[in-house]
Amino acid sequence: MNLDRDTLLTLFDREMREHARPDGPGVRVERTGDVVRQVGAAGDWNGVVWSAPDLDAVRADAAIAAQVAHYTALGHDEFEWKLYAHDRPADLAERLLTAGFEAEEPETLLVAPVAGLSTAVELPEGVRLRTVSDADDVELMARAHERAFGSDWSRLRHQVLARLTEDPDSFVGVLAMVGDEPVSSARMELYPGTGFAGLWGGGTVEAWRGRGIYRSLVAFRARIAAERGYGYLQVDASDQSSPILQRLGFLALSTTIPHVYRPSH
């Protein structure tokens, strides 16, 4: 099945954004005016996932102000407006910046039909993959992530533990192990009813990069997605992983630039 870029993007916008499902226990998705947003506790991901495609300047400014007021009133230390390059109006990014948002690094939205992806896992000698099953494994994921990316995993630790303990059917965590040491970790979030599963993470510690672990993590998760009946995999890819994923069969649909609002205290 060879769906074109526009068809896939339309499907993604409808299933994963306009009709978004909560991404974990204890959070809710709300349609309010011209936006769809997720609202949870301070440790959850909070933010706008969709805005109306016919949004004009006046309605955009009103929607931005309303979300700032809403999340600020909740007392969270930050929330995100997940902006995509094809969102309207064309100057929505500038309007967010004017309202006090900060732009993060852009990522490429990639989607692939699961049926077209390789599920062959080819690992370097001494490396094995296994799924995450308990809180100790989550700590190993955190260790691999922090060594690979050099960034704090505390917020993600909370979210991953919640998924694993309260909604395990919507989450798959994977560890690449050398002996007792994690050298890479990745996760897959399943969105029942959408046909989509999302690939996240995939950072490998420096000494083990360039040896096929990332590709194997993709193939391993693609196999599980296929077994569970999901039709598409979606990735918000960095500049490092985007070329690899496109060689594996993913199609670049758009660019996403998270815009984060942090109320001044």
Rank of each mutant, 00 (worst) to 15 (best):
V260A: 05
D61N: 11
T119S: 10
F171K: 05
R88V: 14
D91C: 05
F196I: 04
G33Y: 02
E78L: 14
D56F: 00
S238T: 14
V114G: 04
A57H: 13
R228M: 03
R215F: 08
G150K: 10
A148M: 11
I224E: 11
A148I: 10
D87I: 05
M141W: 12
N46E: 11
L96K: 06
E30V: 15
D54V: 05
A186E: 11
W153M: 07
L199E: 02
R95T: 12
I244T: 03
R31H: 09
P192D: 15
A52G: 06
R262H: 09
D77N: 11
Y214L: 05
F12G: 04
V138Y: 00
S170F: 04
P113E: 12
P182N: 07
L110S: 02
E107F: 10
L251P: 00
P168D: 06
A225E: 11
V138E: 01
R128Q: 13
S170Y: 03
T194G: 02
V138T: 03
G229P: 01
A52M: 06
L245D: 02
V39T: 10
I64D: 00
A66M: 04
R187Y: 07
P113R: 03
L217T: 08
R187L: 12
S264Q: 14
E139K: 05
V132I: 12
Y230T: 04
V174F: 00
H158F: 12
R157F: 06
G231A: 09
M177C: 03
V132L: 13
G193S: 07
N2H: 12
G47M: 08
F12R: 02
K82I: 14
G173R: 15
V48Q: 01
A52L: 05
G173Q: 14
I224C: 00
G195F: 12
G203S: 09
S154K: 06
V172H: 04
E94C: 07
A197K: 08
R223M: 07
L245K: 06
S151E: 15
L129Q: 06
W153T: 01
A62I: 11
Q67I: 07
G201E: 06
T108P: 02
T32A: 00
H265D: 07
V121I: 13
F101K: 11
R155A: 15
D167E: 14
D136E: 14
V39C: 01
L164M: 08
I64V: 15
A85K: 02
A197Y: 10
R163Q: 14
V218D: 01
Y230R: 02
E107N: 05
A57M: 04
R155Y: 09
R37V: 01
L253N: 03
E125I: 05
P182G: 06
V68I: 15
A176Y: 09
A226N: 03
W45E: 03
W81Y: 12
D6K: 13
A176C: 08
W200G: 08
E125F: 03
L140R: 15
A120I: 15
A135G: 01
